Amino acid sequence: MHSYSLLTTEELLHLLQEDDPQAFEELYKRYWFRLYVSAHKRLRVKEAAEEAVQTLFESLWKNRHHLHIHTSLENYLFASMRYIVLKMLYQQMETAMSDDLSPSVSLQESPEQEIIGRDLQHYIQQIVNRLPERCRQVYQLSREEMKTHKEIARLMGISEKTVENQITKALRIIKTQLHQLFSL
């Protein structure tokens, strides 16, 4: 019989990987509050922070047999928490934008969210830069220069339907790339 509170984190991880639920419970007790504080600093909503921690521990249990941690478990948990929070912020942003992506959206609730927002804007801009030329031009005229479909069609000598199709194509590519980035 183990006295779980006396075991090292690495020993608990080993027991967890051998399906020991008490090792999981001890890890939960040790890290729940610190992970919650970390998530709450970024999300600023109690329920969202609790959900993030719950998601992390569910994932830890489900993937216990496949964990290959190259640093410490603590580093792994906090890095995982950052990814979960980033994914949640992305989902909040996507919901708020109602299917319309615009690189000018800013998440400025906290300095960390502002940094995440800038990183996300930078990543979206990289995706936009890799779009096919016509698609990129139409997207930039629409989203960055705020031109109407009619104005873009006149400027580029194409139909409004083509403008619509190019914007749809750009948004689909951007969303696909972002979903790949945020898949855990």
Rank of each mutant, 00 (worst) to 15 (best):
residue 52 A to M: 02
residue 109 E to T: 11
residue 77 L to H: 07
residue 70 H to R: 14
residue 152 I to Q: 01
residue 54 Q to D: 09
residue 117 G to M: 01
residue 130 R to N: 14
residue 137 Q to A: 09
residue 162 T to E: 03
residue 86 L to W: 11
residue 82 R to W: 09
residue 101 L to V: 15
residue 108 Q to T: 14
residue 56 L to C: 05
residue 89 L to R: 02
residue 149 H to F: 08
residue 144 E to C: 09
residue 156 M to A: 05
residue 50 E to C: 07
residue 161 K to A: 15
residue 92 Q to G: 07
residue 139 Y to E: 03
residue 74 E to L: 07
residue 151 E to Q: 15
residue 116 I to R: 05
residue 70 H to T: 12
residue 144 E to D: 12
residue 58 E to R: 09
residue 164 E to K: 13
residue 167 I to G: 00
residue 103 P to E: 02
residue 147 K to R: 13
residue 140 Q to V: 15
residue 136 R to E: 04
residue 162 T to P: 01
residue 57 F to R: 04
residue 126 Q to A: 08
residue 91 Q to V: 07
residue 52 A to P: 00
residue 119 D to R: 12
residue 115 I to W: 08
residue 152 I to S: 01
residue 154 R to S: 10
residue 86 L to T: 12
residue 96 A to N: 09
residue 132 P to Q: 06
residue 68 H to S: 12
residue 144 E to T: 06
residue 122 H to W: 08
residue 144 E to Y: 13
residue 161 K to T: 12
residue 88 M to D: 04
residue 88 M to S: 04
residue 144 E to G: 07
residue 98 S to N: 15
residue 150 K to E: 14
residue 73 L to D: 06
residue 169 K to M: 07
residue 135 C to L: 07
residue 103 P to Q: 06
residue 107 L to M: 06
residue 167 I to P: 01
residue 127 I to A: 00
residue 79 A to T: 14
residue 133 E to A: 12
residue 158 I to H: 01
residue 67 L to I: 05
residue 148 T to H: 03
residue 95 T to R: 13
residue 85 V to G: 01
residue 112 E to K: 05
residue 53 V to H: 00
residue 132 P to A: 05
residue 117 G to N: 02
residue 125 Q to N: 10
residue 113 Q to F: 03
residue 144 E to V: 08
residue 81 M to P: 04
residue 166 Q to M: 09
residue 114 E to W: 11
residue 160 E to Q: 14
residue 84 I to C: 05
residue 49 A to R: 02
residue 49 A to H: 03
residue 164 E to T: 06
residue 151 E to R: 07
residue 132 P to C: 01
residue 69 I to R: 04
residue 117 G to E: 02
residue 58 E to F: 12
residue 52 A to Y: 00
residue 70 H to D: 11
residue 143 R to H: 14
residue 134 R to Q: 15
residue 58 E to W: 11
residue 54 Q to E: 14
